[in-house]
Design a protein around this nucleic acid. Structure first.
Lengths: 146, 146
DNA sequence: CCATCATCTGCAACTCTGTTGCATTATGAT
DNA sequence: ATCATAATGCAACAGAGTTGCAGATGATGG
């Protein structure tokens, strides 16, 4: 079950185990692809927590490296996490954002390439987002287009 | 002068030539690197125009392809443009965002690589942002750190 | 098992970026 | 110069995310 993995991760990161943190990690572990604050907050297990508390905990988990974030071209952040011993999105690859349904997909086969920055610049991270329409939305479009 | 280039570009794109459009393009042509709505609106020549009008025109210029946009990891868009006959940022390369001063830099020597997306996905565009600290901010830091 | 205290949570209010609706004004085609 | 069309300014709104603070909760020591 994901709760055990979640608790384990929290313990390793040396932060208190609270219900919301366990739930966030469990949800992210189970979904396995990047989801927005809104998506997370409408999950059954998290519906009754405060928006703000959710934001604060997502930021904490980001800082501690238990979760990684991808900024969509719609301006909102998606969060993704996997238990350490499970193959999954480590955040170091491009993501695809469907501008129609808002879903984000990992493109895990391709690494984000190394990029040369001017000397003396300090790199903290990279974001590589491809945007467009996913297969599902393109098919939906075809039905109603004509 | 940039105004002539600006008018030329507007004429070619077949949109009305108004004062704000001429000024936006002239400002972007002269700056030559991506700047935010806030940066643009505090430029001398544009200070007296309405926020909303500026947003609407930036969006129009984006649509018409006279300007391109880059979303920073701080969640706000930067806009960049060059006159057609001048070597400049065509938008098809990575950008560096300094998280401290908020300035964005083009990394024009390196093209954004081709990325394979799942079949039947439709690509509309790409965003590739490297974030961290620019040389200037790192130096500033050194003075006060100890 | 309970007390204690640091930390976390919920609430209200706020900021910042960007958008919409509508009345007024300017543009450029005739 | 006239006039329809398009652009502007204003007010109000929307959504994402943050801050401050009072009250609740979780880990630790007795």
């Amino acid at each position: 079950m994901s709760y055990q993995k979640a608790e384990e991760a929290l313990r390793k990161a040396d932060i208190r185990i609270t219900r919301i943190r366990r739930e966030i990690l469990a949800v992210l572990y189970e979904l396995g692809h990047p989801v927005s604050h809104g998506d997370i907050s409408s999950e059954e297990q998290l519906r009754n927590f405060d928006r703000v508390t959710l934001y604060r905990n997502l930021n904490l988990l980001l800082e501690k490296g238990l979760v990684h974030g991808v900024l969509g071209t719609d301006g909102s952040w998606r969060y993704c996490a996997h238990p350490k011993d499970v193959e999954g999105c480590p955040g170091r690859h491009p993501h695809f954002l469907c501008m129609e349904c808002g879903r984000m997909f990992c493109l895990p086969d391709q690494a984000i390439p190394f990029v040369e920055v001017p000397s003396d610049f300090e790199v903290a991270g990279k974001q590589f987002v491809i945007y467009g329409r996913c297969a599902e939305c393109r098919n939906k479009g075809k039905d109603t287009e004509k």
